[in-house]
Design a protein around this nucleic acid. Structure first.
Length: 227
DNA sequence: GCGCGGTTGAG
DNA sequence: CTCAAC
DNA sequence: GCGC
């Protein structure tokens, strides 16, 4: 397959770039124009660069990249995990040194990777807007990101919130405690208080249900200022 | 010679 | 402080 | 390449 432009025009572009970047004569970085043109040509005609094939097929590179796809695991941790002898996502599941976020990211790896259909994002946006209006009339809630750019599906929801009176609002502190139904009783006791009762309820929970799944059964708390 | 985005939050 | 998400 |  031939690219729609010829090598001489590429060469001109490369020269121009090289001139701007104050590189050595006839070079871009440490690549000669010839090599650069050849590589661009290969990418345009085959869609990839054979020089990089080695990397894509390397077991370590593949595994570390895979680990890096887990929400909560970045480049540093991905590499560490690999060097600690982990080679699959199932290996990672055995590792209890993972952070809370990483455990969640791993557990819901497949879920999180799934794209969200546009209509579903629209539904969720409307739901939030409705809840927002009821909470504080005049609230403006908009879903941004790829949804706002008109994409047919989205990786997540990016929500932006404002209010006309936002600047003058008196700030109140709010604590949200969300419990699964089967632990609601503990939560109610704990967060009615006083602090002594809070501690005993926490103890009861720990003693009776600490074996339950922390994501599905654990209380989640949000401690926030309304801003 | 090094970092190259800045901010926020978890741990 | 490091690491990660956004 | 630029600022530290």
């Amino acid at each position: 397959m031939k690219p729609p432009w010829n090598c001489s025009s590429l060469r001109d572009l490369a020269r121009e770039y090289a001139a701007k970047s104050h590189g050595a004569a006839g070079k871009v970085g440490n690549l000669s124009l010839g090599v650069m043109v050849a590589r661009i040509h290969e990418i345009l005609s085959t869609g990839k660069l054979s020089k990089l094939e080695h990397f894509e097929n390397d077991e370590k590179v593949k595994t570390v990249s895979l680990f890096g796809e887990v929400w909560g695991i970045g480049p540093v941790t991905a590499l560490k995990l690999y060097e600690n002898g982990h080679h699959t996502l199932d290996d990672l599941k055995q590792d209890d040194s993972l952070s809370t976020a990483q455990k969640i990211g791993l557990k819901y790896f497949d879920d999180i990777k799934k794209r969200i259909p546009r209509h579903e994002v629209k539904d969720m946006e409307m739901l939030l807007q409705k809840a927002g209006q009821e909470l504080l009339p005049g609230m403006i809630i908009v879903c941004g990101g790829s949804y706002r750019r008109g994409k047919a599906s989205c990786g997540d929801l990016d929500i932006v919130i404002t209010h006309p009176d936002g600047e003058r609002e008196l700030r109140r502190r709010i604590d949200l405690k969300v419990y699964p139904r089967d632990r609601y009783a503990f939560g109610l006791i704990a967060w009615t208080g006083n602090d002594v009762l809070n501690r005993s309820a926490a103890g009861m929970q720990q003693h009776h249900i600490s074996h339950l799944d922390p994501m599905l059964s654990g209380p989640s708390e949000a401690n926030a200022f309304l801003e």
